Amino acid sequence: MTGAVAGPALAGFLTGLSLILAIGAQNAFVLRQGLIGRHVFWLCLLCAMSDAVLIALGVAGFGAVAALYPALPRIMALAGAAFLLVYGALRLRAAWQGGGAQMVAEGGRGLKGTLLVGLALTWLNPHVYLDTLALIGAVSTGFAEGAPRLAFGAGAVVSSFVFFFSLGFGARLLSPIMSRPGAWRIIDAGIGLVMWALAAGLLRGALAG
């Protein structure tokens, strides 16, 4: 019985990890909060729990939601692109003005603000729904209902927790680098450009659809 669930659990873990490893807006924000050491635990918990909810829905068979509401993907894409454009502009402005170092000195935004940004970067990102509801949900159908499929879903959920907490708390290893002058300008500029690139991709997809 152990082998019957160990294999699906490992498959779920590797599937979830392969989908989440790509550099995205959510990951970039977690990395940045980890670098400044502010509200890391709660942000990582929020992101991992959000993924857990979506993975559970996908494994439970709700991957057809987008098919039932054809306009939903486009609405989510436009909302996500708008948010990413604004947040990316803020990060690029911080890079220009050197605001990253100032944020570290001042302690950054509060817990509520941090979690609100984390929620927006998670739930306004259509790719999250593609990865969890659609892809993980689709892969889970390759396992028998019951314990094997539940084990697959659990493995995917564990991968999310492992990734976000490793990213958030592992970022502290970069603190010696971040103490160098100009380092925060590079980080903020990189994050801003990533945000804008993701927004452009969302807009292209929404307008093409």
Rank of each mutant, 00 (worst) to 15 (best):
Leu119Gln: 03
Gly100Gln: 05
Ala81Asn: 06
Leu84Val: 01
Ala81Asp: 10
Gly118Thr: 07
Phe83His: 07
Arg93Pro: 08
Ala79His: 04
Gly80Met: 12
Gly88Glu: 09
Ala81Pro: 10
Arg91Cys: 14
Ala77Phe: 04
Arg93Cys: 08
Gln97Phe: 03
Gly100Lys: 01
Leu92Cys: 09
Met76Leu: 15
His127Phe: 06
Arg93Ala: 13
Gly110Asn: 13
Gln97Thr: 15
Gln97Tyr: 02
Ala95Ser: 11
Ala71Met: 12
Ala71Val: 15
Gly113Asn: 11
Arg91Ala: 05
Leu72Phe: 02
Tyr87Gly: 01
Val117Asn: 10
Tyr87Thr: 02
Leu124Asn: 03
Tyr129Thr: 01
Val86His: 02
Arg109Val: 13
His127Arg: 03
Leu124Arg: 02
Thr122Ser: 15
Thr114Gly: 12
Gly88Pro: 06
Arg91His: 10
Ala71Leu: 14
Ala94Ser: 15
Met103Gly: 13
Arg74Leu: 12
Leu111Ser: 06
Leu116Cys: 10
Arg91Met: 11
Tyr87Trp: 07
Gly88Tyr: 02
Ala82Trp: 06
Gln102Arg: 14
Asn125Arg: 00
Ala95Asp: 11
Gly88Ala: 00
Leu124Ala: 07
Ala95Asn: 07
Leu78His: 05
Met103Pro: 08
Gly118Val: 07
Ala71Ile: 13
Arg109Ile: 11
Tyr129Ala: 06
Leu124Phe: 04
Gly107Arg: 12
Gly98Lys: 05
Trp123Cys: 00
Gly108Gln: 13
Ile75Glu: 04
Leu85Tyr: 05
Ala95Gly: 08
Leu115His: 00
Ile75Trp: 01
Val86Leu: 09
Thr114His: 08
Asn125Thr: 00
Gly88Gln: 08
Gln97Asp: 12
Ala79Lys: 09
Gln102Val: 15
Leu121His: 01
Ala79Thr: 10
Glu106Asn: 11
Leu92Gly: 06
His127Gln: 15
Gly110Val: 11
Tyr87Lys: 05
Ala120His: 04
Gly99Trp: 07
Ala101Gly: 09
Thr122Met: 12
Gly80Gln: 03
Leu130Asp: 02
Ala71Pro: 00
Tyr87Ile: 00
Ala105Pro: 06
Gln97Met: 09
Ala77Ser: 14
Leu78Val: 14
Ala71Gln: 10
Tyr129Ser: 04
Leu116Met: 14
Gly99Glu: 13
Val86Asn: 01
Gly110Asp: 15
Glu106Gly: 15
Gly118Ala: 08
Met103Ser: 12
Ala89Glu: 06
Phe83Met: 09
Tyr87Ala: 07
Leu119Asn: 04
Met76Ser: 05
Ala105Gly: 12
Leu84Ile: 09
His127Cys: 00
Met103Gln: 14
Leu72Met: 09
Met76Cys: 12
Ala89Ser: 11
Leu84Glu: 05
Val128Leu: 03
Ala105Trp: 03
Val86Trp: 07
Leu84Cys: 04
Gly100Trp: 01
Leu111Tyr: 01
Leu92Val: 03
Glu106Ile: 05
Leu84Lys: 02
Lys112Cys: 09
Gly113Ser: 13
Lys112Met: 13
Val117Glu: 10
Trp123Ser: 02
Leu90Arg: 08
Gly100Ala: 07
Gly118Ser: 06
Arg109Lys: 08
Ala81Val: 09
Ala82Asp: 08
Lys112Glu: 07
Val104Glu: 11
Thr122Pro: 01
Leu121Tyr: 03
Ala95Thr: 07
Val117His: 04
Leu121Trp: 02
